[in-house]
């Protein structure tokens, strides 16, 4: 059964149309990956879901509740978390303060924090450190942990492995799998196809602000030429 349904999103940057009828449906415990070239509209789609860019058309429903008319700050409170591109930590705040902001979004219990720190134990040793001084990998872990503190039904991940070392990428991948296994729906935007294939259940290819094709991960694995056709990556 679908947890989140997005139907017919249109959005503009000035006069340029950035999203055209963008629609996705996510079930609990699945990872849907959005792939596409730079400028295809993937990041814009996530921002439109979060309400931080204005939609001119479309509807979003979470667990049967229509969120379309809600102000942006109500979307995370409803249960959708966003890990944005470039991490976007509150760099001057400590690790503990960043996590506290995550916990306060839906007044989550201490259990949510324990769960997040269980996935990224290195953060426990850094609680009083300013988050801007963490390494790149640790900063990504903190953005993931902060989003998990919301106890979301859906999590939107925008290129979480960007600029990370292979060991850190493995940690992020493990976290995505744990989220999925715990019933959280994951909408993953990635440039790195190799980071997607081990964790995704379905793949949607975007171009010019709209979804051009959808496949199961097995269909993609069995026909890697799809990647070349839609995102220009060699099979």
């Amino acid at each position: 059964m679908s947890v989140m349904t997005v139907e017919g999103f249109d959005a503009f940057y000035g006069r340029s149309q950035a999203l055209r009828g963008f629609s996705v449906e996510l079930r609990g415990g699945e990872v849907l990956c959005l792939l596409g070239r730079n400028g295809a509209g993937k990041t814009t789609a996530l921002k439109a879901i979060m309400g931080t860019i204005r939609r001119t058309a479309g509807r979003i429903v979470l667990d049967g509740r229509d969120l379309s008319a809600l102000p942006a700050y109500e979307i995370p409170r409803a249960g959708i978390a966003h890990v944005p591109q470039g991490r976007r930590l509150f760099a001057e705040l400590t690790v503990a303060e960043n996590l506290e902001i995550g916990l306060s979004t839906r007044k989550s219990s201490r259990r949510a924090l324990d769960y997040a720190l269980g996935l990224f134990p290195v953060l426990t040793e850094r609680m009083h450190q300013r988050s801007g001084t963490l390494s790149g990998g640790e900063q990504t872990m903190l953005t993931m942990a902060r989003a998990m503190c919301i106890e979301p039904a859906v999590i939107l991940l925008d290129e979480p492995t960007e600029g990370l070392m292979p060991s850190a990428i493995a940690g992020i991948r493990e976290a995505v799998i744990r989220l999925r296994d715990n019933g959280v729906a994951v909408l993953l935007v990635e440039q790195r196809v190799d980071a997607v294939l081990p964790v995704a259940d379905r793949v949607a290819f975007m171009d010019h602000g709209e979804i051009k094709a959808r496949f199961t991960i097995d269909e993609v694995r069995n026909d890697l030429s799809l990647l070349h056709r839609y995102v220009g990556v060699g099979a």
Binding site: M50, T52, A72, Y73, P84, F90, L93, I101, R106
Partner: peptide, 25 residues
């Protein structure tokens, strides 16, 4: 205070503050 934390978060990044349910307005 919680209010101070929300103010500082809003100061550093308005969009991310919205993404964490902070009513920026």
């Amino acid at each position: 205070s919680k209010m101070g934390l929300l103010m500082r978060a809003t100061q550093y990044d308005r969009e991310t503050a919205l993404n964490f349910g902070i009513p920026v307005g």
